[in-house]
Each structure stands twice: as C-alpha cells, then as structure tokens.
C-alpha cells in the first residue's frame, strides 16, 4: 500500500493546517423560532482528527453543522474556523449534506454533481472546463465509482449517491470536512470505500467531523467523539469519552429540566 507515501506528502502539505485548530465553537446557542436546539455548545477540534458526532434524533447534530456553515443564524456564541470566520475560510471547508436533502431525479450525471464542488473556484459565469472535469473524475476515482461518472444520478444506488456527494466535497481539496450522516443506509462496499477516504484524509493531516448513527462502529472509525444532545454531553478522545455512562446521558437516561421543557426528542429518542 502507498499509505506511507501519503503520510509523508500529507504531513508536508499539512504543515500549516497541522498547527491550526480547524474548528472551535464557544457557547453556541441556536434556536428555531425561539425553541433552542443547541444550548451553550462548546468544543475545540484538534487538527488531523476524525470526529464522530453522536446523539439521538433531534439532538441538533445537523443543526450544529449548519450553524458552522452559517446556513442557520446563531442566537449567540462564537465559531472559529482555522482561527478565522467561515467566510474567510470557505475554500478550506467541504460539506457533505444528507443524501435525502436533494432530488435525485435531477437531470444531471454523477460527474456533473462532483463538478459542482468546483463551481466556486471556477467563478461566476465561467464555464466548466476540461481540467475541472478531470479533477472531478479523479475525485470519483478516489471514492471508487469512476466507471459510473456518466450515469444519471437517479440510476445510482444509495451508496453510490452518497459516494458522489463525498467526491463533490473531496474535489474542493478542503482541510476540514463536515459530513451529515454519510454512513446512513449505505452498502458495505460504500462504507469501506468511505472509511478508506476518511483514513487518507487523516493521514494527510485533514480533519473530518462526521455525524454518525451506528454506535457500534464509533470506536473503530473515530479517534474523537462528540456526544451531543442539545448540549455537549461529552467531547474527547473516543477511548476516554465513549463510555456507556456518557451514552446513557446522551440518549436520555435522566432528562434534565431543559430537555423536559423541550421534550420533542423524547418521542423520537433512539435506544442507546
């Protein structure tokens, strides 16, 4: 394997990002129509880590990512990306939304979708060129579906669609990746392919923050874990933080007053 080669190249390339904290969040509160979804959330992601975000439905995991990406207004708090604002560091952040968030009947092929990750670099009004398509092709190659580049996206399987989304984020060449449930309902081959990509990212000093539902694979996939249920229940190295006690707290063992007040998630809560 060429893992060592990537490691060397990666650590050189990541020289700058290795020192910078890719994401720090202080006292973040986000509310939907006055109902708080995230409450005083704070953490600091170490560079070059794979972070799993875990919590029940309605815990505010997607909201957290969207707040970081400034897709949602925050009621209070501060978010720093690589020490600056999101607007300053947009190019260094790649986003993989939930697969269900788009209409896969849209008349484009997989390569088109991946190319969309380059639109910002291409700029206003300029057409997509050959070299952009080549870059997109290389990204598809990395996630293992280059042979499906010209397949209409509705004809891709769920796992292939998810890989297309991952490739769209990869093609940006970002240093921090925010992924909203990339492993949800994908086939085993896709899971392996995406995991390999995550490990490559880590090897080259990049950081990924991944919302994850399958608790069993958390220790195996992620070296840091963020247990979230409207507030941060625990954050730290998986080996220290991913304990049954913390999980119990996250998935609603005893409800705090805050949670009772907004008890929506109790109905939807998942088993630990």
């Amino acid at each position: 394997m060429n893992a060592s080669g990537i490691e060397i190249k990666g650590s050189e390339a990541a020289g700058k990002s290795a020192r910078e904290v890719p994401l720090s969040v202080y006292d973040l509160t986000v509310a939907y129509q006055r109902k708080p979804v995230l409450w005083d959330v704070g953490f600091e992601i170490p560079p070059g880590s794979l972070v799993g975000v875990v919590g029940p439905n309605g815990a505010g995991k997607s909201t957290l990512l969207k707040a970081v990406l400034e897709l949602l207004p925050k009621a209070s708090g501060r978010i720093r990306l690589f020490g600056g604002s999101y607007a300053e560091n947009r190019q260094r952040v790649g986003y993989v939304p939930q697969r269900e968030s788009v209409d896969w009947d849209f008349p484009v092929d997989a390569l088109d979708v991946v190319t969309m990750g380059l639109y910002r670099q291409i700029g206003w009004f300029r057409p997509v060129q050959r070299r952009h398509r080549d870059l997109a092709m290389a990204a598809l190659e990395r996630v293992g579906i280059a042979d499906l580049a010209h397949r209409q996206i509705s004809q891709l399987s769920g796992g292939q669609q998810q890989r297309t989304f991952l490739a769209r984020a990869l093609v940006q060449g970002a240093d921090l990746y925010l992924m909203d449930e990339p492993f949800a309902a994908v086939d085993a081959a896709t899971e392996r392919a995406m995991l390999a990509v995550l490990r490559e990212m880590k090897a080259s000093g990049k950081t990924a923050i991944v919302i994850h539902h399958d608790l069993q694979t958390v220790p195996q996939y992620f070296d840091y874990v963020l247990l979230l249920n409207m507030r941060v229940v625990a954050f730290g190295p998986t080996s220290e933080v991913f304990t049954s006690e913390n999980l119990q707290k996250t998935y609603g063992g005893r409800l705090t007053l805050l949670e009772e007040a907004t008890h929506a998630m109790r109905e939807q809560g998942r088993q630990p």
Binding site: K66, L69, Y95, P97, V102, R120, I122, R126, P127
Partner: peptide
C-alpha cells in the same frame, strides 16, 4: 446562458450552494 451553472447548482442543491457561499 450567463447564469446556467449557478442556477443548475441552486436548483439541485440549495444548501450546498449556500455553504459554498453562493
């Protein structure tokens, strides 16, 4: 024809477009 690429992205994935700063 001028905004073809931009609208394509907007129509397909508004959230991603917004996260990219469009």
């Amino acid at each position: 024809s001028l905004f073809f690429k931009e609208w394509k992205l907007l129509c397909f994935d508004e959230t991603f477009a917004a996260s990219n700063g469009w």
